[in-house]
Amino acid sequence: MDQRSDRAAGALLGLAVGDALGAGYEFGSAPFRGEAEMIGGGLGGFEPGEWTDDTSMAVCIAEVTARGGVDLQAIAGRFLDWYASGPPDAGNLTRAVLGAATDAADVPMRAASRFETHPGSCAGNGALMRTAPVALAHLGDDQAIVEAAQAVSGLTHADPVSGEACALWCIAIDRAVREARLDGIHDGLALLPADRSAFWEARLIEAETSDPERFGSNAYVVSALQAAHAAIVSTPVPEGQPSRHLQDALHRVIGIGDDTDTTAAIAGQLLGARWGVSAIPDRWRHVLHGWPGLQADDLVDLALRTVGGASSVLRR
């Protein structure tokens, strides 16, 4: 596997690794003593190495993008398949939208209706946790990334701020895969309207100049992005072993606390996109598994097939 492919596959695998690492510590389920391990447990009673809804929903997207392009109705259909399987844990907004939907076409309509009636509750972190396949499907095409990220977010999280967060994080993943850098999120600011760019620039500066512990309440999509970003930028890149940064930054974001599986999944996408599959320790990779009966190598395959069949087509 060449370096770019290693990084592309790392985006999806890093998501799952962060998710499974953080699952056991979610909302104080287990004490955190400086370094995380795949202990299982958490709110869903997960097995060690088992991923949660964060990765399962990303898999739903990746199964579609691996066939080429972003088909919103197909993704919504897979979301419903996953939800019908009786997952042990799901976000409140996701549960409300999918639980009320009658079919795949109804999913975004339920999300929109939810936003219209409960706008203040529709900007949770549940779309930002699953963005990696969207970025991989459109590498090198910024406008397609932004459009697809916002559209996929809107399937369950119709608040525009969620779509903006997903767009920015997808641009960051694109730059990490294609250019091997971690600061690409700032490139995404120019792709937003001026007032929204100013809003997000201030939030990024806040994350970059604050102790990550400041973002200890991170169910809101903005604070979840800030927690992940703050942990990544505040963690030194070790001299002589730079890829160790992936592990160190994941420990740091989990140490912030609260919704640890999701913030670590968010951070893991970008860290994996920068440092690649090769930076993920075997002890984590070998126990990784989850719905619908997949393991680490299956995620690598989905990621590589997404990149290999990448298309700028967005089908609604």
Rank of each mutant, 00 (worst) to 15 (best):
A36K: 02
A180S: 15
M109C: 01
R181V: 12
S113H: 12
G24A: 07
D183S: 14
L139M: 08
L139F: 01
E206P: 00
L80P: 00
A310N: 04
P236H: 06
G126N: 11
G10P: 09
A66S: 15
I256G: 01
D142F: 02
T306D: 02
R316F: 01
A111D: 01
Q247A: 15
S121H: 14
W291G: 09
Q3H: 10
D159V: 05
T263K: 12
L299T: 03
T156Q: 03
E239T: 13
V97K: 00
A167W: 03
D297P: 02
D141F: 04
S29T: 13
A148N: 03
E47N: 10
V307R: 03
D19C: 15
W82C: 05
D106S: 15
T156Y: 02
A100D: 11
A202P: 06
G293T: 11
S234Y: 04
P236R: 14
R252Q: 15
H118T: 13
L43A: 11
L294T: 03
I232K: 09
G86S: 13
S234M: 10
D6T: 13
I254V: 15
D103K: 12
M109W: 03
I205Q: 14
F27E: 07
S197L: 11
W200N: 13
Y83L: 06
W275S: 00
Q295S: 07
V307F: 05
F79C: 00
D187M: 11
P108S: 10
H157L: 12
R67K: 14
D248H: 13
G44M: 10
